[in-house]
Write a protein that binds this DNA or RNA. Structure first.
Lengths: 235, 235
DNA sequence: ACAGGCGAAACTTTATACAATCTTCGCCTG
DNA sequence: CAGGCGAAGATTGTATAAAGTTTCGCCTGT
């Protein structure tokens, strides 16, 4: 009686149909296959995933709540186009949250987790060697998410998922050079600090890692958005 | 051409129908008129707000994303019942974010904002004098939201809105005594620090304020949930 | 008397149809 | 020939109806 057999915390990413749509579109955006400003027609997506507009709409609303899609009334859904101001907010939030997350992760180290991290680093290196930019971008984000999962703090994890998704768009829009994703070496350093359970070092490395990513961005006046986008689109 | 007349950032809480439903239900939960575990039938809510189930469903999904409603597959939506573990996470996140928020708020002080804060404190005192517990709970949360708005950081604001809503449920479930909301005096002290633009003092006061709120909670083993809820419900 | 299973009712989920709105393209006018 | 008006097409917002699932009561059998 006291302990009900009902699953208390259902998996956040259940394998229902709307989640498939959401994750599919999210992946497309995070891998830079869908560029900022792209219109996401409901029929269009529905046809791709073989789903009715009802489900597509649900998925798009969730993505809008996560900040990677903008829904304009009577006009439809578009891939979000963060402004430089948005970018600064996102990275300020990450600088606040991620050091704390990696701190907590240090306390949760286990052979299983270290193995997982190690395998991830290998994947990242491989993608970088292949020159697979899409995979690099995706894996780079997943590294940060992995640490958040490791921290065991579901709220931080939820927040960070949002921030990572937005960061991906920001990096696409505002990166100066075509640097090979955000340095894989930094990730290795963070893992090393985690392995040694050196919380202070982990915090410091995470912070400087984020600083370096942001330093490579070109966050000028908002008016430059249009130009920058046109450049990215190859116009 | 460069500057399009389209409204760049639409108001987050537009006055459309789904927002009215969302805000109505949120208010009901935050004012403790809807208790944790309460079933939120779609027909029921739809009839109250004179809306179709389509709109109600949209609103409920948004609330689920905010963490104050749980949607169980094929069973419906229920007011969330945070566990003690959830509560600890929420307050840990608030202790991380809110000092930073109030720090930023110190830089945004203006006569208009100080007036707004002052009027809010007056409202809080009045509600407390009236012994209006519902208004007190609501206003207490709104104070923290006000400071987040003042900080001008939209991401922090979004995060904090979630945390505040969950905190309200947590306080209802786990508060020891029926203390008169979280101390209005603390709020006054925070406002004083903001007025003096004393960022360090503001951070410190916010932190101790949150500590005190959490200290008044009774966060024991998860199994106590049921008993506690039964107690609150007067069963 | 009680345990187990069957069945109906209520609800959520999904799909489809209708209405409102915006965009676009053509045409007319100055 | 440029600019604006207007109607057709397309797309989204909303409501309603069909389908599937869960739950609860009741009945039967032991």
């Amino acid at each position: 009686m006291a302990a009900k057999p009902r699953p208390k915390s259902d998996a956040p990413d259940a394998s229902d149909r709307v989640s498939r749509i959401r994750e599919g579109v999210t992946a497309a955006i995070l891998e830079h296959r869908l560029l900022p400003g792209t219109k996401l027609g409901e029929d269009e997506i529905g046809e791709i995933y073989g789903a009715s507009r009802t489900l597509v709409r649900t998925a798009l609303q969730q993505l809008a709540h996560e900040g990677i899609v903008n829904i304009e009334k009577n006009r439809g859904a578009f891939v979000a186009r963060p402004t430089p101001a948005d970018a600064r907010e996102v990275f300020e939030a990450r600088r606040l949250i991620e050091p704390t997350i990696v701190d907590r992760a240090c306390e949760a180290v286990s052979p299983a987790w270290l193995d997982r991290l190690q395998r991830h680093l290998a994947e990242e290196r491989e993608a970088e060697l292949r020159g697979d930019a899409r995979a690099s971008v995706r894996l780079s984000g997943e590294f940060h998410r992995l640490i958040a999962e490791m921290s065991g703090h579901s709220i931080y994890l939820g927040f960070l998922k949002e921030l990572i998704a937005r960061s991906s768009l920001i990096i696409l829009l505002y990166r100066r050079h075509d640097t090979p994703a955000c340095g894989t070496d930094h990730h290795a350093g963070i893992v090393a600090a985690i392995r040694k359970r050196d919380r202070e070092a982990a915090r410091g490395q995470m912070l400087s890692h984020l600083d370096e990513i942001e330093a490579e961005l070109f966050l000028k006046d908002p008016a430059a958005d249009e130009l920058r986008l046109a450049d990215v689109l190859g116009a």
